Simulated scan of single mutants.
Amino acid sequence: MMRVLPILAALGLALAGCQGSAASAEEIVRAPAAKRIANEEAGLKTAVFAGGCFWGVEGVFSHVKGVKAAMSGYHGGNAATANYKATSSGVTEHAEAVRIVYDPMVVRYDELLRIFFSVVADPTLRNRQGPDVGAQYRAALVPMNAEQRAVATAYLKQMQVSGVWDKPIVTGIEKYRKFYPAERYHQDFMAKNPRHGYILRWDAPKVVGLKKLYPDNYRATYLRDAK
Rank of each mutant, 00 (worst) to 15 (best):
Y218D: 00
G77L: 02
P194T: 09
Y102R: 09
Y218H: 03
G90R: 15
S162T: 05
Y109C: 05
L223V: 07
L11S: 13
M2T: 08
F117D: 00
G90C: 05
K227G: 14
H63T: 08
E147N: 04
A121V: 07
S21D: 14
F189H: 09
A70I: 04
K157N: 13
F49E: 00
K227N: 09
A135H: 06
K68Q: 12
A80Q: 05
R224F: 05
V119D: 01
G197H: 08
E41A: 13
G17H: 15
L210H: 04
V208H: 06
V207M: 04
E26H: 09
V91I: 14
C18H: 02
P32N: 00
L200Q: 12
N39D: 15
V60L: 09
S162M: 12
V170K: 05
Y185S: 08
A86Q: 04
T81G: 04
R177W: 08
R138P: 02
G51L: 11
E40R: 07
V161N: 13
R149F: 13
Y222N: 10
M190R: 09
N39G: 07
V29T: 13
E96I: 11
Q158E: 12
N83I: 03
M1I: 14
G163N: 04
V29Q: 01
R149I: 14
D103E: 03
A80E: 14
R195V: 12
L200T: 12
V164T: 11
A97R: 01
T87H: 05
I169H: 00
H186K: 04
R219M: 10
N145D: 11
F49Q: 01
Q148H: 04
Y137H: 13
H196T: 01
R184S: 11
A70E: 03
A23M: 15
S162W: 06
V60C: 10
V60W: 07
T81L: 01
P123M: 08
I115E: 04
V67D: 01
